[in-house]
């Protein structure tokens, strides 16, 4: 192989191109990817429907069953009761956003799309950060809108039972925001799990297993340490963000949730840098 006598390379010969890989561009790209899939639209529609429908169901059933006792007396926790319906759907919504969170990344690996994504962003990790940001923010906004609408549609039923709360009462508003935040965070945790496992089936099984199966397993073990571990699981500790918990303050629940996400994402990022795409 003789030494090169090639002409000057083309990229320097042309006028400076405005084309640049930017953080804003990667975020825009992930937003286009998220909104251009049917699964996204369906999943968010289901989150909205669950939030409103289960809110109405829970409030109607509770009010009619408990009657007078449900009415807020002097000692009643009015904000808790007022947000009961609006946040009742979260326990189901978290399953949907977890599935979607896994799909956001595993869908790229299972279809080969990840190679196109990494060819455009060869440093790779910006893709993961952008996915987390776009999916997290979108899930938070969709969840918050759904929860607020659930709050408003359940409001008339609750006020008939003398449970009236001002939306702008911090105790009410922060619980609703916290519930939306919990949904977004559980979706981001699932995204991290999906990025580690790279498979849709495995990712969904692991993410839902962590929420549904693992707590039951620890619940079956009659030991204090087992109960403590169970308390610290994301599906349990995380609920403290939007519900009164006898164990954790809301901010403690938030920190535990963030810790889980940090561990999952750190593992995902390490593997993403190392593995061949």
């Amino acid at each position: 192989m003789s030494t090169s006598t090639a002409p000057a390379r083309r990229s320097t010969a042309l006028p400076a191109s405005p084309i640049r890989l930017t953080v804003g561009g990667i975020l825009r790209s992930e937003w286009i990817k998220l909104r251009s899939l049917r699964s996204t639209v369906w999943a968010y529609a289901v989150v909205f429907a669950l939030q409103v429908a289960i809110g109405l169901l829970v409030v109607s059933v509770t009010v009619s069953n408990t009657g007078e006792t449900f009415r807020g007396g002097p000692g009643a926790n009015i904000p808790e009761l007022a947000t009961l319906g609006a946040t009742a759907g979260v326990i189901f919504g978290q399953l949907v956003v977890s599935v979607l969170g896994v799909l956001v990344i595993s869908g790229e690996y299972s279809t080969g799309q990840i190679r196109s994504s990494f060819a455009a962003v060869p440093k790779r990790l910006p893709v993961l950060w952008a996915k987390l940001a776009v999916f997290g923010v979108t899930t938070f906004v969709v969840s918050l809108v759904s929860i607020l609408i659930a709050f408003f549609v359940t409001y008339p039923i609750l006020s008939n039972a003398n449970i009236t709360a001002d939306l702008w009462d911090p105790n009410v508003f922060l619980k609703l925001v916290g519930a939306a935040g919990y949904l977004a965070l559980s979706g981001m945790l699932a995204l991290g799990i999906g990025a580690i496992l790279r498979s849709t089936a495995g990712g969904i099984a692991a993410a839902l297993g962590l929420l549904l199966v693992v707590p039951i397993v620890f619940g079956l073990i009659p030991a204090d340490w087992s109960a403590t571990i169970s308390d610290w699981l994301p599906g349990n500790a995380g609920t403290a963000i939007y519900q009164s918990s006898r164990i954790f303050e809301w901010w403690q629940g938030l920190l535990i949730m963030l810790g889980w996400i940090a561990v999952a994402i750190a593992a995902a990022a390490t593997l993403m840098r190392r593995r061949d795409a």
């Binding site: 084309i19 640049r20 890989l21 561009g25 825009r28 286009i32 251009s36 994504s117």
Partner: peptide
């Protein structure tokens, strides 16, 4: 569109 968006295309 998504691929190009990364580079402002």
């Amino acid at each position: 569109l998504a691929l190009g968006a990364t580079h402002g295309i």
